[in-house]
């Protein structure tokens, strides 16, 4: 991106997130959000707690606890789903091994 330079911390975080799969993340309502979670936090060390970052994704009027799988343990969970709006039925289910 030689033509655009991120200056502040948030711009750098956005640029860093372009390396991740953020398909479907832009849905406004939490129940339609298919974000893959932010296990290591999006602000480097500012919020490194996995469960908290997943919960806080939907902070606001509601949250849906455990809505997304642990993306480190299940890094390929979105691979069967090229387009979240069309292929969401192909999303794999994370087995409950507990």
């Amino acid at each position: 991106m030689s033509r655009i330079k991120p200056l502040n911390i948030k711009a750098r975080a956005v640029e860093a997130s372009t390396d991740r799969d953020v398909r479907g993340y832009a849905f406004g309502d939490c129940c339609a959000s298919f974000a893959p979670g932010w296990e290591v936090g999006t602000q480097d060390n500012a919020d490194p707690c996995p469960w908290k970052s997943d919960l806080s994704l939907c902070w606001g009027t509601c949250y849906w606890m455990g809505q997304v799988p642990d993306y480190i343990s299940y890094g390929e969970w979105l691979d069967t789903c090229g387009n979240i709006q069309n292929d969401w039925r192909n999303l794999c289910t994370i087995p409950d091994n507990g």
Partner: peptide, 18 residues
């Protein structure tokens, strides 16, 4: 030339073509 993205409070420098 700079652009401030309001929803994320991100600030970018960009060339004139961009």
């Amino acid at each position: 030339s700079h652009v401030f993205h309001v929803p994320t409070s991100s600030l970018y420098a960009m060339d004139s073509e961009t």
